[in-house]
């Protein structure tokens, strides 16, 4: 995927999230602003036979994976036009037929699930790999240790990707993680690991491509740490715990501004206009979809 295509993806993510954030019916969301390069770079190396699982910070991963933006927005707004008929929202958004096995809003909860998907691939001799995207907040959980161990023992086709934005809600990584680099957690298991600047989309893509190639060649699991930034608060209901000066420093590391500058305004401006138009169209289509009603529950009972 070209650098321009990466920028196009990131701009769409930002445009959709910005429109959602401005709505009174926004709901409880975790935005990816500042982490779009991780989603775009990772998804650039995933093909139709692969599956992506992620945390509850799922909007950019789903859009980067190529899900129909209108369907994603419908899901976020609780409309039946969403792939989960508005039942799942951001926290559990899924469309496995599109290679997006889905979000799971329990921190570290999707790690062993993703290993299970990879086990099913391996058991059925199915080509393709599984990627699981999680935050640094998940890196202190026992689930990561258990899953790294089994993935390494069984040589599962699994790419661990940690978007290390440095914050677990209000707790800085220095206060919740002993290792300086999350990727160091994978190395004792013999798992190839790399740390990359997660605000540099082409660098994420290239690092992910190298690790994914190893997995596809039968080398077993790999681990990518992408050091990213979280430009806003943890969620739409969480207070911002960082100072204005801190936030200004983070804004200077905005991955979209970075790639736009690298590609030049002449290329970036029309991509930005196209992303805005695509996001507007997605919301228009989504709003035409009927809201979920209590009838959805009859199906579950």
């Amino acid at each position: 995927m070209s650098d321009a295509a990466l920028l196009r993806t990131m701009l769409l993510c930002r445009a959709v999230e910005a429109r959602l954030a401005a709505r009174p019916d926004c709901g409880f969301q975790l935005f990816s602003a500042g982490e779009e390069a991780v989603a775009a770079g990772l998804c650039a190396v995933l093909g139709p036979g692969d599956q992506l699982l992620c945390s509850g910070r799922s909007i950019a991963p789903a859009l980067a994976r190529g899900l129909d933006p209108a369907a994603v927005v419908a899901e976020l707004l609780g409309r039946t036009g969403g792939p989960c008929r508005g039942r799942a929202g951001r926290g559990h958004l899924a469309q496995p037929s599109a290679g997006f096995f889905g979000a799971h809003a329990v921190v570290a909860g999707n790690l062993s699930i993703a290993a299970g998907v990879a086990l099913a691939f391996q058991a059925a001799a199915r080509p393709g790999i599984v990627a699981v995207l999680f935050g640094d907040g998940a890196a202190g959980a026992g689930a990561l240790h258990e899953t790294l161990n089994i993935a390494a023992l069984w040589q599962l086709p699994l790419l661990f990707v940690c978007s290390n934005n440095g914050w677990s809600i209000s707790t800085p990584a220095a206060a919740h993680l002993a290792p300086a680099r999350v990727a160091d957690l994978a190395r004792p298991f013999g798992i190839p690991a790399a740390t990359v600047d997660g605000t540099d989309a082409p660098a994420v893509r290239d690092a992910a491509a190298a690790l994914a190639a190893g997995i596809r060649a039968g080398g077993g699991p790999a681990f990518l740490e992408a050091v990213s930034v979280r430009l806003g608060p943890h969620s739409t209901s969480a207070r911002e715990s960082r100072t204005r000066a801190d936030l200004a420093a983070l804004a200077a590391r905005d991955p979209i501004a970075r790639l736009s500058a690298a590609l030049g305004e002449a290329l970036a401006a029309p991509l930005r206009a196209a992303a805005d138009a695509a996001a507007d169209a997605a919301f228009r289509t989504a709003e035409a979809s009927p809201p979920a009603t209590a009838d959805e529950l009859d199906d579950a009972a």
Partner: peptide, 17 residues
């Protein structure tokens, strides 16, 4: 590793096994 064992079992089942 009971948590991962069940997680793997569930994930594999969800993915067609």
């Amino acid at each position: 590793a009971e948590a991962a064992m069940v997680g793997l079992g569930v994930g594999a089942a969800a993915a067609g096994a």
